[in-house]
């Protein structure tokens, strides 16, 4: 008992430090969950929770049988997969490459410049993208015309281009910022390992592959699992600002679909049902991938 007391006293301050975060989690993530009941109602904000009609699984049945929903789901997953393939690997490669810059001053300048786009809002980035890709006086079209004599391409209305544009603009905006964690990991690698490998005759490439990269693996796994957990969610602003009605077929993702249906058409119950289903699938996905990760790599989120 006395031992327990002493232990409690020693960790009490730590619990106190944890308390604000727990409170925030409760207030903003758990308490609002009562709102999920509206997915089983034809909810009206003017009738309130208990005066709105209960409709059972109606909204779930509606969106599950709606082609549009599955098209939106597919778009969300495809864009996320592209983001993982290219957007997730880009900061890893970037961190490895920057680590190879020998002159500290140059390294710092490269890092600082790479962080800058992170501080631009998506509205600015999307504006730049629209301007650069415009078929009238857009920089890219001007260059293609000048170099190859090509006629202007309307990139922003081309369904085949949207995902590339979205992924590339995301990489440009976030590669430096996302690489910070990897820079921190690399900074913590024992320098004697590099010295020993040099004595053994390892090239810089081999050092990167056999020392730096393995050191980064725990962080990569952690971030990868978090990324997988969010595979059915996607940043609203990027897609919303880069899309237009002509490419909704490939650009409409769950958050933009929910925005259009929920806010613009006041279908709160339907969109809550979609959100609930999305969270449920993401939850299953996270638990499943965490188990697989533990089995294969011995590492996991919990």
């Amino acid at each position: 008992m006395a031992r327990r007391k002493i232990r409690f006293k020693s960790v009490f301050i730590l619990y106190m430090l944890l308390l604000p975060s727990m409170l925030l989690l409760l207030v903003f993530n758990y308490f609002p969950m009562y709102g999920l009941i509206i997915s089983f109602q034809d909810y009206s904000v003017f009738r309130g929770f208990w005066h709105s009609d209960w409709v059972g699984w109606k909204h779930f049945a509606y969106f599950l049988s709606d082609d549009k929903f599955w098209s939106v789901m597919r778009n969300t997953v495809i864009l996320n997969v592209y983001d993982i393939l290219f957007g997730f690997t880009a900061p890893i490669l970037f961190a490895l490459l920057v680590n190879e810059i020998l002159r500290k001053r140059v390294k710092k300048i490269v890092q600082t410049i790479s962080y800058l786009p992170h501080f631009l809002s998506w509205i600015v980035v999307a504006g730049l993208v629209h301007q650069m890709l415009s078929p009238v006086n857009g920089l890219v079209n001007e260059m293609l015309g000048f170099l190859f004599g090509m006629s202007p391409i309307d990139f922003m209305t081309d369904k085949g281009m949207f995902r590339s544009i979205a992924v590339i603009s995301e990489i440009w905006k976030s590669v430096g910022w996302s690489a910070i964690l990897y820079f921190a990991v690399i900074a913590g690698v024992d320098t004697t390992l590099y010295e020993s490998s040099m004595i053994d005759g390892a090239s810089r490439f081999r050092q990167a592959i056999h020392i730096t990269l393995p050191a980064m693996v725990p962080m990569i796994v952690l971030l990868f699992l978090l990324k997988l957990a969010a595979i059915f969610t996607i940043g609203f602003e990027r897609v919303f600002l880069l899309q237009n009605p002509l490419i909704y077929d490939v650009s409409e993702v769950i958050p933009t679909y929910i925005y259009r249906l929920g806010l613009q058409q006041s279908q709160y119950s339907l969109t809550t049902a979609i959100g609930l289903a999305q969270s449920f699938i993401a939850f299953v996905f996270l638990v499943g991938s965490n188990r697989l990760s533990k089995r294969w790599t011995g590492m996991g989120l919990y």
Partner: peptide
């Protein structure tokens, strides 16, 4: 070229 090339967006 009698219709704006960026008419769609």
């Amino acid at each position: 070229g009698l219709l704006d090339k960026e008419f769609a967006t």
